[in-house]
């Protein structure tokens, strides 16, 4: 306060080194990646007419009369997705209870279960399907197994995070009345997470429908197999029809499922 009123307070600008360094690293990564992958925007743009030629072959016009032959594999795709997410949810429930650290208060149980779940989620469903096709042969069984493992990992992860976020007061209340572990699960945890659990299962189902539509590309059943066969034989108008039909099927399923999920949670 005793300072002269004429004296100005000059704030030093903070060092921007870290900021510029980060920008430099990001720019290096982006340009390095493009260079490494041989991505050339000029080449892409100059080939743009090829895209239109292909779209023309696919959709102008698509093979409308092929629709009747697509329905059966389309239903198979949906069935694969339903069975995959249903089985995934069945197994995911007990596993997510084991992974939640507020129910099983034992790090030696939680951690290994979580590591296994993480590993399952890092393997893409398509890779799993390709492996299962090698073991069990071409067909929807391999695809279902792949979807089952994938949805199991997804639902478990989301569910155990929900269990950890529950209102713990209800658990304590029922514990103080002398409830055992099973009763805690049944009356304090399940009622709280059941809507979310069902919502996650539906979400896994949505993802599975999309995944199932392409699993056939490695021979794991569903509409992808029809797609691959027609593409190999260069029936582009049929391929276009398959793309259109599966696109609208996925869109309709998404809308229905999302509306149910909105009501659930």
């Amino acid at each position: 306060m005793s300072k002269d009123s004429n004296e100005k307070i000059v704030l030093k600008k903070p060092l921007r080194f870290k900021f510029y360094f980060t920008i430099g690293v990001v720019v290096f990564l982006i340009f390095g990646s493009a260079l490494f992958a041989g991505f050339n925007i000029i080449e892409v743009l100059s080939n743009l007419d090829q895209t239109f030629r292909l779209l023309d072959k696919l959709f102008l016009p698509p093979a409308w009369d092929y629709t009747s032959r697509i329905i059966a594999p389309l239903f198979e795709t949906v069935q694969m997705a339903i069975v995959g997410s249903f089985l995934g949810a069945l197994v995911a429930f007990p596993v997510s209870v084991l992974a939640a650290d507020n129910f099983i208060e034992n790090k030696f149980v939680n951690t290994p279960v979580r590591i296994v779940l993480n590993i399952f989620r890092t393997i893409p469903a398509l890779v799993l399907a390709a492996l299962f096709v090698a073991v069990f042969g071409i067909g929807s069984f391999a695809g279902i197994l792949a979807l089952f493992i994938f949805s199991f990992g997804l639902i478990s992860k989301l569910t155990y995070e929900s269990i950890e976020a529950i209102d713990y007061g209800q658990v304590e209340a029922i514990k103080s009345l002398g409830a055992n572990k099973f009763e805690i699960l049944r009356y304090a945890i399940v009622p709280q997470i059941l809507p979310q659990f069902m919502s996650y299962t539906l979400y896994a189902f949505e993802v599975n429908v999309r995944a199932a539509a392409v699993l056939g590309y490695v021979g794991a059943g569903g509409i992808g197999q029809t797609y691959e066969r027609n593409l190999a034989m260069r029936y582009f108008d049929r391929v276009g029809m398959i793309i259109i039909v599966s696109f609208f099927a996925v869109l309709i399923i998404d809308v229905i499922s999302r509306n149910i999920r909105k009501r659930l949670v």
Binding site: A37, G38, F39, N40, E43, V44, N47, L48, Q50, T51, L54, L55, L58, L126, R210, A213, V214, Y217, Y227, L231, I243, F247
Partner: peptide, 19 residues
């Protein structure tokens, strides 16, 4: 629109490979 099908479309445009 599945990315795998997009990939197949782009393969016929820029050829197989990372781009």
């Amino acid at each position: 629109f599945p990315e795998l099908i997009l990939a197949l479309i782009f393969i016929s445009v820029v050829g197989p490979g990372a781009p």
